[in-house]
Design a protein around this nucleic acid. Structure first.
Length: 883
RNA sequence: GGGCGGUUAACUCAGCGGGAGAGUGCUACCUUCACACGGUAGAAGUCAGCAGUUCAAAUCUGCUACUGCCCACCA
């Protein structure tokens, strides 16, 4: 074989892009046709908003998805990760609006069609960016199946769902109070409103009786809405006001007469116990108005200014200014009593942060109750599982309190509602196809509903619409339902619950079995990463500085199930160092190939250390499989880290150095054959966590073919287990460590060789192992000479290191500081004495002996023997040293 | 007002009924021919507090204290 040269330093930029290209070119992200009977493993990506760029949350999310996908791909399941993007109605429209505004253009000037052209351009741009970002971080998704929530197929699915729900009576149109964002100029769904506590004032105002007999006192936080008042309400149980119900008061400024009514909603304790009722601008007041048949006066324009139903001087004034002016006017009228500080929750638009106004308008709604019930049952029946489980509560709570979903948006960017109105006869036509003729009067004088649908109305179909529904496609048959959804807890309502409802409604199945809810990525102070705080980390910066593998591995390693991940740029050093270690271990092996020959399986004889490392590899693979199946990414990451670094690099590679650098050609060939095999299997083990570097090295190895990405995972195999060997090896490591500790403690230079004697008990389990591998022990301890046996003639001049079943004597007494060694031994003695006392106390306890399981008692007995043995030795050493 | 998390080594976090762990940082020694993004060794913790269950509690239960998040119409 020829030596393969790797660059001295690990430099991910040298190969990451090229490796990704080669995977793509060879179509390795597509599901493989296998006939091994394994079920498909399918993930549909949570589609990123096509307006944005990827942030660290996506970095985490997609890294974990990629790990799952790569793991199952290597396990032999037909594996599909379906990518795509979301048109993000409001967010995208706002971006384009802002761009136009910067050019001094209002979208209404250029009209709907031209505006949409502009928006598609923005979409194309951002889509390119997002796709390349996903590629950069190594996402192995099947780009040939990529979808967009506004593409032709998904639009068809959206129409089908809308019409079908309409036909089932689950969609209706009506004039209701909705959440209105005056800045975005559209209605929002309830969960698109973010409630935040804001400081405000509670104003107290007099309304005069119509008969001039005095005043009542009401309390309000929103005096400007009084212009839309149609009543004043008190609690029917309130003795103070019982006599007033039915009387009339004059609404100041508006100069209208309104009644005093009784409704149990009103709290007697809060404010004055008298509430002004503004049905068109407060959800509670709306309810009261419905109960009492009160008129509803809308006083706002869609842009949030006061409309023509208020006195002239207030028209076109914004709400905040109007509030100020109303208070001033009330003051001048002598009707203003005062105000006090009052903090309360105010709804804000989740897209633009504008204060949300309850606003009366014609909107389309979906009746959710029946679908929610099915979704609740799916959880009850264990058809879906949340990881971690606690998110079930959030899901259940929301579904149990579900309200109808306002799906119409007064936007241009989105799926236009498939409803046509006849201008001649007023007929409403809801149709899957484009309508040109009125179905009732035959007129062609029709116009389509101007509104578009909520973005989530397309997203909630994602798991099946992306697979071709409503067509009965092969993909749909093969890959639906999907397996796992990986997403953040912030969209459990928006998206997760709704997908489950839509799937149950239209596919009669849940859309996925497992829901893995990731934590949030935060900075080291625990703050959410955000643009405004400027504390965000761009995944591309991480890739640029450390490489995609370093990012993926670090996030995996830190990702304790569902807990938030606190990071800064420095954190990624963890993964970077690991990748560097992998690189250099491979480099070392590959630089030793010159002139060597691979042995065939038949000629190859494995030694104890080879068998040990195979055992460790197998154990690690077992841990990975077990933990990935439970979505415990950190444990899986830890298992491969420990295997590769601690077992493979620190021990195995060191143990083989003698063979590799010795004179024996046969042994050299043997060693390199095993090393290459172990390396190759280690790369398989590592691949899901560090795909680029593992593939790059794999490609350069002489004993590999094809691509690592589709190679077999080294699945756990019982026959690879070798527990006795593992125990022997642990003792081997212990004795070496003990001597090293002594050397280090007295700063004996590494190159200095010291005589060592190991005296074993005849009952010592690893005695044969020690005798057999004396040469390695000697080398690792830097001992000269070393004697291993059951007797040692002379221990004078030595410092002892106690082990279990043996004692090691290091002849360095002339080199050490005896008092400090005595100190150390005393400390150890105290510790052992304490431990022994604890164990003895336990073993003397009858209740313990009666109640504890057999193996625990046996373990305690073992501990007692161990501590006793050690303490005896330490005692002896102390006595000896003091001489 | 309800609900859910978190509190373990200087920092970031594992462990969640039977001997306190990792990574980073720190200390000492080592530039030995894979790697100084390294090696070998070391120091470092009344596992937030109190009470309970148990033979046994960082781990289970209850309460308290901070701390974070979600939900909820009190004008």
């Amino acid at each position: 074989m020829k030596t393969v040269e790797l660059s001295k330093a690990y430099n991910p930029k040298d190969f990451e892009d090229a490796v990704y290209e080669s995977w793509k070119k060879n179509e390795l992200f597509k599901p493989e046709d296998t006939d091994n009977g394994k079920p498909p493993f399918v993930i549909v990506i949570p589609p990123p908003n096509v307006t944005g760029v990827l942030h660290m949350g996506h970095g985490l999310n997609n890294s974990l998805q990629d790990i799952l996908i790569r793991f199952y791909r290597m396990m032999g399941n037909p594996t599909l990760w379906l990518p795509g993007t979301d048109h993000a109605g409001i967010a995208t429209q706002n971006v384009v609006d802002r761009q136009l505004k910067a050019k001094g253009i209002d979208r209404h000037e250029i009209g709907r069609e031209r505006f949409l052209e502009e928006t598609w351009k923005v979409k194309e741009n951002h889509h390119t960016i997002i796709k390349s970002q996903l590629e950069k971080i190594g996402a192995s998704c099947d780009w040939s199946r990529e979808r967009f929530t506004l593409d032709e197929g998904l639009s068809k699915a959206v129409r089908e769902v809308f019409v079908s729900l309409y036909e089932k009576g689950l969609i209706y149109k009506g004039n209701y109070l909705v959440n209105w964002c005056s800045s975005c100029g559209t209605a929002l769904a309830d969960d698109e409103v973010e409630h935040r506590e804001v400081p405000a004032k509670l104003y107290k105002v007099h309304y005069p009786y119509a008969d001039g007999s005095g005043f009542i006192e009401i309390a309000t936080t929103r005096p400007e809405t009084m212009l839309g008042d149609t009543a004043v309400a008190v609690n029917p149980e309130d003795d103070r006001y019982k006599g007033l119900v039915g009387k009339k008061v004059i609404l100041p400024i508006a100069d209208r007469e309104i009644p005093i009514i009784a409704d149990s909603y009103v709290s007697m304790e809060f404010g004055t116990g008298m509430v002004k009722i503004t049905p068109a601008h407060d959800p509670n007041d709306y309810e009261i108005a419905e109960r009492h048949n009160l008129p509803k006066i809308n006083i706002l324009n869609p842009d949030g200014t006061l409309n023509n139903d208020v006195p002239e001087k207030y028209r076109n004034m914004d709400v905040v200014s109007a509030r100020k002016r109303i208070v001033e006017e009330l003051e001048s009228l002598g009707l203003f009593i005062g105000s006090e500080k009052h903090t309360h929750q105010v709804g804000h638009c989740y897209r633009c942060n504008t204060v949300i106004e309850p606003y009366l308008s014609d909107q389309w709604f979906v009746r959710m109750k029946s679908m929610a019930d099915k979704a609740l049952k799916a959880l009850e029946d264990d058809d879906i599982r949340f990881y971690p489980k606690r998110w079930e509560n959030t899901y259940i709570h929301w579904l149990k309190n579900i309200r109808d979903w306002c799906i119409s948006r007064q936007l241009w960017w989105g799926h236009r509602i498939p409803v046509w109105y006849c201008r001649d006869c007023g007929e409403t036509i809801v149709s899957r196809e484009e309508v040109t003729q009125c179905s009732k009067c035959g007129s062609s004088n029709l116009h389509q509903e101007e509104d578009v649908l909520d973005t989530w109305f397309s997203s909630w179909l994602w798991p099946f619409s992306t697979l071709g529904w409503p067509e009965e496609t092969e993909d749909l048959k093969e890959f639906f339902p999907t397996t796992t959804l990986v997403t953040g807890y912030d969209i459990i309502f928006f998206w997760v619950a709704r997908m489950i409802m839509a799937s149950l409604e239209f596919m009669d199945q849940v859309p996925f079995r497992d829901i893995y809810i990731t934590g949030l990525v935060r900075d080291k102070q625990g703050q959410k990463m955000s643009k405004s705080l400027g504390n965000g980390i761009d995944p591309l910066d991480v890739v640029d500085k450390y490489g995609a593998d370093a990012m993926k591995f670090t996030l995996c390693f830190l990702s304790n199930q569902g807990q938030d991940v606190l990071i800064d740029m420095n954190t990624f050093n963890l993964g970077s160092k690991f990748a560097n270690k992998i690189w250099n271990a491979a480099r070392y092996i590959l630089m030793n190939l010159e002139g060597r020959e691979l042995l065939s399986k038949e000629e190859l004889k494995l030694n104890d250390f080879d068998n040990w490392i195979y055992h460790q590899l197998n154990e690690a693979a077992g841990k990975v499989e077990e933990s990935i199946k439970l979505y415990k990414f950190n444990i899986a990451g830890q298992a491969v880290y420990e295997y590769f670094w601690n077992d493979f690099c620190d021990w195995y590679l060191e143990l083989t150095k003698g063979s590799l650098q010795g004179e024996d050609v046969d042994e050299k060939n043997r060693a390199i054959t095993v090393l290459l095999d172990i390396l190759q299997k280690s790369l398989r083990l590592l691949h899901p966590f560090v795909p680029f570097i593992s593939e790059e090295i794999y490609q350069k190895m002489p004993n590999t073919e094809g691509f690592l990405i589709t190679a077999d995972y080294p699945a756990w195999n019982e026959s690879c287990q070798n527990k006795v060997l593992a125990e022997n090896m642990a003792a081997f490591q212990d004795v070496i460590k003990a001597v090293r500790t002594l050397r280090s403690e007295f700063t004996i230079q590494p190159e200095k060789k010291v005589p060592v004697g190991i005296r074993m008990n005849t009952s010592f389990n690893a005695k044969d192992f020690f005798l057999k591998h004396q040469a390695q022990i000697k080398k690792f301890m830097r001992a000269e000479p070393l004697s291993v046996g059951f007797e040692i003639k002379d221990i004078s001049g030595s410092v002892p290191a106690p082990g279990l079943g043996y004692e090691a004597f290091v002849y360095i007494r002339d080199m050490i500081d005896i008092p400090s060694e005595i100190q150390k031994l005393k400390k150890e003695y105290d510790k052992l004495a304490k431990q022994l006392a604890g164990v003895e106390k336990k073993l003397a306890n009858e209740k313990f002996l009666k109640n504890a399981p057999e193996e625990v008692i046996e373990k305690e007995n073992g501990k007692k023997r161990e501590f006793s043995e050690r303490i005896e030795k330490v005692k002896k050493y102390l006595a000896d040293l003091k001489k």
